[in-house]
Amino acid sequence: MLNITTPQIMGILNVTPDSFSDGGQNYQTEVAIKRAFEMMKEGATIIDIGGESTRPGADEVSADEQIARVVPVIEGIRQQDKDITISVDTTSNKVAEVAIDAGANWINDISAGEDSVSADGSEEILRLAADKKVPIVLMHRQGKSKTMQDAPFYEDVCAEVNHYLKERAELAQASGVPKDNIILDPGIGFGKLLEHNLALLANLESLVNLGYPILLGTSRKRFIGEIIGAGNGDKQGKKNPEQRVAGTCATTVLGVQAGVLVFRVHDVIENKQALDVAWRIKNS
């Protein structure tokens, strides 16, 4: 069972040529494995490995190609470290199953099970999480990667996201996943405009109050660039994701204060420092 009582850092390991911020940097298996161990030393306790970019406008990647990208990395990490938590970032039931068999022990599904519906109408990836007895992250997303930023619209983004995630969590439990193995993610930047992201971040406590561990993924995202590039002549953050680290850390501090338990980030050292300080302040 999932047992997270203090905030944790999940290090992002994109084994892809086209991810929005670090595409291509860890595309080679040996480089990816090395980066995983670097992030562990920097303070990450979870490594999230993905073989498909989910940035706005991204094309889908076949299950076989995802497997070819992520499995050698998972196996390489496991050969050297038996204990680190490895999460596979995929919406594919096939990818998730092969990854778990290779040594992954979490599923991170940005579609909350919606992309793995079988002929009988059930979500295969939810049943897989139940059968394999592994935690699963269920994320809110409006639309798919190719079109999700075309025209996102909400009447009340916080109420709608919370309602959706509560429903998906209940469906996962009906599929056999214990409540204690479900993590929820509001999906910052996935089918959401700046004002939607800000509203969700300002109201994280309402999501925490649903009673599930919350994962927050804001790392280097576009909305941070929109903020830091507005009105001050500084366009670097708007154009260059690597200039958004301090902005990401600000959201990590807010998340800790709100009760978020998992922070999915590229920049482990900086966010771990922000997390540790915020946690000490919160508990002082």
Rank of each mutant, 00 (worst) to 15 (best):
I214Y: 01
I227P: 00
P213G: 07
L216E: 09
P241S: 11
K238P: 00
A230K: 14
L261E: 03
G229K: 08
K235E: 13
N271A: 02
Q243R: 15
K235W: 10
E270H: 05
V256M: 03
S219E: 00
I228P: 05
N240Q: 13
V262N: 02
F263A: 03
V260W: 00
G237Y: 07
D267S: 05
A246R: 13
R264N: 13
A258I: 05
T252C: 09
A246N: 11
N271F: 01
V253P: 04
K221I: 10
V262P: 03
T251G: 03
I227Q: 08
G237M: 11
L254S: 05
S219W: 04
V260F: 09
V253K: 12
V262M: 13
G259N: 06
Q236C: 12
G231H: 15
R244D: 02
F223T: 07
G237I: 06
E270G: 03
L210G: 07
R220F: 09
G247E: 01
E270P: 04
I224N: 04
D234T: 14
G231T: 09
G225M: 07
A246I: 14
I227F: 06
G211D: 03
L254K: 14
L210K: 11
L216F: 02
V260Q: 01
V262W: 06
V262K: 00
E270W: 05
K238Q: 11
I224L: 09
N240C: 10
K235I: 13
T248D: 01
G247R: 02
G229I: 11
D267W: 06
G225D: 06
G217S: 15
G211P: 00
S219T: 03
V260G: 04
T252I: 13
K238W: 11
V245Y: 05
